[in-house]
Nucleic acid binder design. Structure first.
Lengths: 148, 148
DNA sequence: GTAATTGTCTATCGATTTAATAGAGATTAC
DNA sequence: GTAATCTCTATTAAATCGATAGACAATTAC
């Protein structure tokens, strides 16, 4: 399940992507417009900032802006930052692999094999879909059709 | 994330799939062999039984057996029974659709669009991979390559 | 028919995670 | 220096997860 937090993060980033470039946007504005609890959104944006997706400015004319063009911010990145690895099991993750505690033999584990496929097909979509892709209706399905 | 419970369920079903057909297997045997807490496994098997994946027999010669051939039991079914819908959001589910509480306009929701694709590619794998598929090394990747 | 063995069912528990809130602190514009 | 903003740490209430306990029901063996 995608967490509420990740949903809020995506909504905030999409809001910033539609805003005028280079002009900081208040947290309170995003919170109001996207119906996200302001205090909660503060934590989320801070997290995104620490991971380099957004920049911030303090003080009276402060606010947040995207750190890169919307075409360079992908669903996969955002979800990994907020919710962790895309894989359904630690042992099926490629960016944050961790052995299962109770796994008898990883080499032959059928569950892992299947979930690796699921993680790969999920990542193929989420890591190839940017903010601008969804804003312009360019879906990863088209991308996939193009031969990725 | 796949729950521990769903992992146990898959392990139990794979164990039954390898056992001699038509002969009931004790819960305690599965629990011992697969290192699953017995009391916990009872609940899981009961759940699988209620959904028609396994049969059970009470009394001294009791135990559990598969209700259908291993080629007719799919990962997707099992995971849905234990963990719920495959989709990452209720509004992106096809078997258990539910509107998001805080969704402004579902028709234009970019998050939903992307997660629908993720759910479809996930379901394509999990609903086409059976117990016997993974036991014989026939992966859904091969299936996909075959043109599904 | 009764004891032993197995599955069935309901309730509960402790730990963790999730979504959110509170409030003090740091920075900037004016 | 004051008002507005972002920053940071702590806390909370509710839900979920993994597991356990114990009474009950069915079947078999003797």
């Amino acid at each position: 399940m995608l967490s509420q937090k990740a949903k809020y993060a995506m909504r905030a980033l999409l809001y910033l992507a539609r805003a005028e470039p280079e002009v900081p946007v208040f947290i309170s504005e995003i919170a109001d417009q996207q119906s996200v609890p302001k205090k909660f959104l503060e934590l989320i944006l801070l997290d995104l900032k620490r991971h380099g997706l957004v920049h911030s400015q303090r003080g009276k004319k402060g606010g947040y802006l995207l750190a890169r063009p919307p075409s360079q911010i992908f669903f996969g990145q955002v979800i990994r930052i907020i919710d962790g690895p895309l894989a359904q099991l630690p042992c099926a993750s490629r960016t944050a692999y961790r052995r299962c505690d109770d796994c008898q033999d990883e080499k032959t584990c059928e569950i892992r094999k299947v979930l690796l496929q699921v993680r790969d097909s999920t990542a193929r979509i989420l890591d190839n879909t940017s903010l601008s892709d969804v804003m312009t209706g360019r879906t990863a399905e088209l991308v996939a059709g193009a031969g990725i």
